[in-house]
Structure formats: structure tokens, C-alpha cells
Amino acid sequence: MATSEVNIFCRQMSGMVAYNGYAYEDVERIARSVLGRVKSRPHIGIICGSGLGGLADMLKDVEIIEYADIEGFPVSTGSGLDHEEVPGHAGRLVFGTLKGRQVVLMQGRAHLYEGYDVHKIILPVRVMKLMGVKILFVTNAAGGINQDFNVGDIMIIKDHFNMPGFAAVNPLVGPNDDRFGPRFPPASQCYSSRLRKIAKSVAERLEMNDFIRDGVYCFLGGPSFETVTECRFLKVAGVDATGMSTVPEVLVANHCGIEVCGITLITNKCVMEYDSTQVANHEEVLETGQKRAKDMQNLIGEIVAELGD
């Protein structure tokens, strides 16, 4: 651990938390600024993970704002697992209508391993809240801990394991503003049972049952993939898939009353044997995302259609 990380950790453990969050008024100003540049008034937000960036092509009445043009927004370095690495497509908000519903898509997200503070990562979610978003779809690419899962499976998230949270790496650390949500929010129902039920029903109608799973997602900081021992530990803990994103955004969405649907694409199987010659790699993740892209897009689109007004 680097000296700066040790210092931050020690301050957190001693109660002297280094808080780098945004005040409610700051988020409110950013949200007003964004809304002032578009006609759309979205009620649904979608964080586009691997294989889902093309969902923007399904939108009508499209309006685009680059992250770099939004005050305070974290701009991804382009090395993450959870956005399409296509020139001109990562790092922007895309507004439009999907199946008749007004939505805003995040094409590209920031990660802890890029060096961002956890409070910076979640700024877009709070901005979406103050723009009027009530439902958030969060998608990601992940490694399969559950050995019954196959590469290309789509997992509907029922719960998560916030491993960095054990060391107080939590976006809710710091002063709490009740206008966002309560000081001690329950996290046992972060993933809406209503939306999970709709997702499963839609998947069945689309004849996706052969590769739809239900499971627990674990958030690890990255950027290194997991060791064999770490994977074995997660398996014992009841984890089905692990990745490097999603949980910070979900915790904040839950905190401020946004209904969440989490969907994971299993892009590789985690290595569980010490003598295995298999290794996780970024190229496999991207390749799987591209192969399953259309299914992911159709699933999200049809779930949105089912929500009605």
C-alpha cells in the first residue's frame, strides 16, 4: 500500500475521515446546468456496462453531453471494463426516448482503480437523482465465481458484497445531508424485487432462460484480477460473480431513494485452482461483451417497455 493510501486509511480508522464529497447545493447546481442544455426530462437512468453501450443507438430524439463539459464529472481513462472502448462513445451522457420512456444513459463510468475518490465516482448518480431519475439500471462485466455459471451468462443481481466497505471505502462516509437520504440507510433491499421480477419475466418471454442467472455480486477495487485464494474465499462467502464497479453507485442510489435493477454479464470464469494455467484477461472480457451485446440491449429495452408510465 502506498504511503498516501496508508495515511488515508489511518485517518479513516481514527475517525479523521478525509471527505471529498459534493454538497447538496453543488449537485443541485450541476443538475440544473445539465437540464438547461437538453429538452429531455428523464425518469430512468442507465449506466452502460460492457456490451450495452450500443443501447444508445436504440434511442430517439437523442441529445448528448460529454462528461468533460460537465462540472465535476469524473472522466474515465478509457481503460475500464464497464464501457464500450469505441472512439467517441465513452464518457458522455446520452439523453433520449427508449420504448417511449425518457431516459439518460451513462456511456462510460469511473472506477476506484483509476485513482478517483469514491465520492467522485458517485457524483453522476446524485446528479441523476436531482434531474428527476427514479429508476436506475446498473450493468457491468464480471468474473464468474459460481462454477455453474458460464461465460456469456447474464446475472440479475439480488444482493452485493462490498469488500472495500470493510475498510470504510463507502460513498456514504462523511457528513450526511438528509436531503439526499438518511444517515444509516438499510442496504438489505438495494436491488428492487419488483424490477428483478419484471426482468425475469421479460427474459422468459425473450427465451433467454438458458443463460439468465440470479446471484450475488462482489465489488473489489481492482485493477488486478483476483487471486485463487480470493476467489475461493468469495465462493465460501456466497458470491456468484465479482467485478470492479457498480456497488458505489448502487449504495448511493439506494440512499437517495432510486429504485435499482442490477444486471451482470459473466465475461470470464474465475480461476479456482492453484495449478491452473488459465488466466483472466481484459481481451476476453471485451470479446464476450461484444458477443452478448444484442441480448443485453434487448433485455434492458424490453424491461423499460414493461415499466409503462
Rank of each mutant, 00 (worst) to 15 (best):
E249N: 03
R196L: 10
R196C: 12
Y274V: 14
P248L: 10
C261K: 00
S245N: 04
R205D: 14
M244N: 04
K294Y: 09
G257R: 05
V250A: 15
V228G: 07
N209C: 10
V304R: 10
G238S: 05
E230S: 04
G289A: 07
E249L: 04
R232T: 06
N281Q: 05
D210E: 15
G221W: 00
I258G: 01
E207F: 08
C256A: 06
K291N: 02
K197M: 09
Y274A: 14
S192F: 02
Q290S: 14
I198H: 02
V202K: 02
G289P: 10
L251P: 00
L251F: 05
I212A: 08
L220D: 00
T227L: 07
T242V: 15
D214L: 06
V260D: 00
A241D: 09
S193M: 13
A203H: 10
C190Y: 01
F233D: 02
T264H: 06
A199H: 09
T242D: 04
T277K: 15
L299C: 07
T267I: 03
E226P: 00
A199M: 13
L206V: 03
Q278T: 08
D295N: 13
N298E: 14
H282E: 04
A203M: 11
S201H: 09
Q189D: 12
P186G: 12
A237C: 13
S192T: 06
A187L: 14
T277I: 07
Y274W: 12
G221M: 10
K235I: 00
R194T: 10
V216T: 15
Y217D: 06
L251S: 10
D210A: 14
G262K: 02
E283R: 11
M296D: 01
V271P: 11
T267D: 11
A237F: 14
T229V: 13
K200C: 01
G215C: 06
S201P: 00
I303R: 02
G238E: 04
L220H: 04
E306D: 12
G222Y: 09
Y191H: 06
D275C: 09
N298F: 12
L234P: 01
G238T: 10
L307Y: 04
K269E: 08
K235E: 03
I263R: 06
F184D: 06
Q290Y: 03
F180G: 02
S245A: 13
E204A: 14
Q290W: 00
V285C: 05
P185Q: 13
R232F: 06
R213E: 07
S245L: 08
L299V: 08
V247C: 11
V260W: 00
V252Y: 08
L299W: 12
T264M: 08
G215Q: 10
N298I: 07
R196S: 07
C256S: 06
D178M: 10
E207W: 02
L234N: 00
F219D: 01
R183Q: 11
C190K: 07
F211T: 05
T227S: 14
I263C: 07
A187F: 09
C218S: 15
V279L: 13
M244T: 04
M272L: 11
L195S: 05
A293W: 05
R183E: 06
R194F: 05
V236F: 03
L251V: 07
P182Y: 03
E287V: 15
